[in-house]
Design a protein around this nucleic acid. Structure first.
Length: 461
RNA sequence: GGCUGCGUAGCAAAAUGGUUAUGCAGUGGCCUGCAAAGCCAUCUACACCAGUUCGAUUCUGGUCGCAGCCUCCA
């Protein structure tokens, strides 16, 4: 039985889909004006794993993840670059898809864009005005009147009168209440804009997600996810908008992933302490990043450091070493391990324990290697359970010979020639020569492993 | 100031009212010409102080420390 932590109730709840056998899940995606950083990668990997697990449990999942392709920062960045905002956003959408592919993130079922949802957004705002939740401010912008929505603050557990609006930012005088947020913003000349009943303008950030989730999944759906920082005000505002417009409950279950930190501080664009995915990929291969993310629980903070990524690399080496040399055949799966794995994942996607089950599996696999039938069963189980986490799908030999992403000076042919020379030296009991060859290779990042019968395998450090 | 959440061994990271987490690193062994890999064994814990309990790392209260949100942010 799958249990998921619901931010709305702050409890793990047994997951009961709205419609039996089906799941609708919406996740707040990127605002595309820059490359994805490791924090973005975490959201993508976490919810990709959630999606994979739902499918593994035979749910018919509809996974929607939006793209915010119009907002102040996009406009500003396009202006700085002296380019059309559409060119900017398309470039970073492409880059994002590239990053996703490298991290083995399966594409969502639907990826709506804000700029393609303007009609839905306008309809939603009109409903909010009719229902008395929205008003046109003195500057022509349309605002949401926060105090009209009875349950405002239910998700973030904030009370309206305790929120110190304007403490860190200047209050917009066009609003009735400092906490009111913009639904439709009038455009200045030269800015991208769309026609609306309130004049040429563009949507506010929060309303986009209400429109895009509802249009793809209906007024009321199962799961809404995103980073912790979106809890307030973004997701709080989404609830107010959607429920204010439809009068229906919006989302049953809210999932929020923890942050990636650098030196115990949040990794963020505003702090400037971020590492982009493509930057890290120069040093580590994609599966290492994915494993690093899944090695801790999705709600815990995750500290980014080279040491941690090195650990992830070592862990994967252990797995692939266990898998190496075993024929991958379509044999059955060991049910005991599957049950343990499922139990871990059913407990709010506890990937940390799920991974530890895989380590136990690898250990047993190493022990039974002489027994081919058993080894094949365990190897197949390891690969199958790994696939649910989106890891261990490489060819083991290729993984082990691939090493990090640094430049290689030694060709495979050269390495293999040296190994042949070393085997000859070994046969002549010329240990000094054999050891020299091994040490030379080691200094170039090549580790040799002798096996029985004068065979030697190698891998990169 | 208000609201969340966290504090686990050398590092990373889970669970749990009493029983081995797990991975890396360390130590001792097995294997090996020697290594590597692997296997076996083993040392390092639950921020602090009270309380509840036969028993608390796990529950409750307090103290200290850290992070996040209260502006855009995944």
């Amino acid at each position: 039985m799958l249990k998921i932590y619901n931010t709305l109730t702050r409890k793990k709840e047994t997951f009961i889909p709205k419609v039996a056998g089906k799941v609708g899940m919406y996740v707040c995606g990127m605002t595309v004006y820059d490359y994805c950083h490791i924090g973005h990668a975490r959201v993508m990997v976490v919810f990709d794993t959630v999606a994979r697990y739902f499918r593994y449990l035979d749910y018919e999942l509809t996974y929607v993840r939006n793209v915010t392709d119009i907002d102040d920062k996009i406009i500003q960045r396009a202006l700085e670059n002296g380019e059309e905002f559409t060119g900017l956003t398309q470039r970073f959408i492409d880059a994002m898809h590239e990053d996703e592919r490298s991290l083995a993130i399966l594409p969502p079922d639907s990826e709506p864009k804000a700029t393609e949802s303007i009609a839905d957004i306008i309809i939603l705002i009109e409903k909010l005005i009719i229902n008395g939740f929205a008003y046109v401010g003195s500057n022509g912008d349309v605002f949401y009147a926060v105090n009209k929505f009875k349950n405002y603050g239910q998700l973030s557990r904030k009370k309206l009168d305790e929120l110190q609006a304007g403490e860190r930012v200047n209050v917009d005088e066009a609003k009735n209440n400092p906490l009111d947020f913009v639904l439709w913003k009038m455009s200045k000349s030269g800015e991208p804009s769309w026609k609306s009943p309130w004049g040429q303008g563009r949507p506010g950030w929060h309303i986009e997600c209400s429109a895009m989730s509802t249009c793809c999944l209906g007024n009321h759906f199962d799961i809404h996810g995103g980073g912790m920082d979106l809890q307030f005000p973004h997701h709080e505002n989404e609830i107010a908008q959607s429920e204010g417009a439809t009068g229906e409950k919006f989302v049953n279950l809210w999932m929020h992933n923890g942050f990636v930190r650098v030196d115990d501080e949040k990794m963020s664009k505003s702090l400037g302490n971020f590492f982009t995915v493509r930057e890290v990929l120069k040093q580590y291969r994609p599966e290492v990043i994915r494993f690093f993310i899944l090695s801790s629980h999705y709600r815990s903070p995750l500290n980014y450091s080279d040491a941690q990524l090195d650990d992830a690399q070592t862990a994967l080496t252990r797995f692939y070493t266990a898998l190496r040399g075993i024929k991958m055949s379509d044999v059955a799966i060991d049910n005991d391990y599957k049950v343990r794995f499922d139990t871990a994942m059913n407990d709010d996607f506890n990937t940390s324990i799920a991974v530890s089950v895989l380590f136990d599996l690898a250990k047993e696999l190493n022990k039974v290697k002489a027994n081919i039938e058993q080894a094949e069963l365990l190897a197949a189980t390891l690969r199958y359970l790994g696939s649910i986490l989106g890891i261990l799908q490489d060819n083991p030999d290729e993984f082990l010979k691939g090493g990090g992403s640094s430049n290689y000076t030694l060709s495979i042919e050269k390495i293999e020639t040296l190994i042949k020379n070393r085997i000859k030296a070994k046969q002549n009991k010329d240990w000094a020569m054999a050891d020299k060859i091994r040490d030379d290779l080691k200094s170039q990042g090549i580790i040799l492993e002798d096996a029985a019968g004068n065979t030697t395998t190698w891998r990169r450090e």
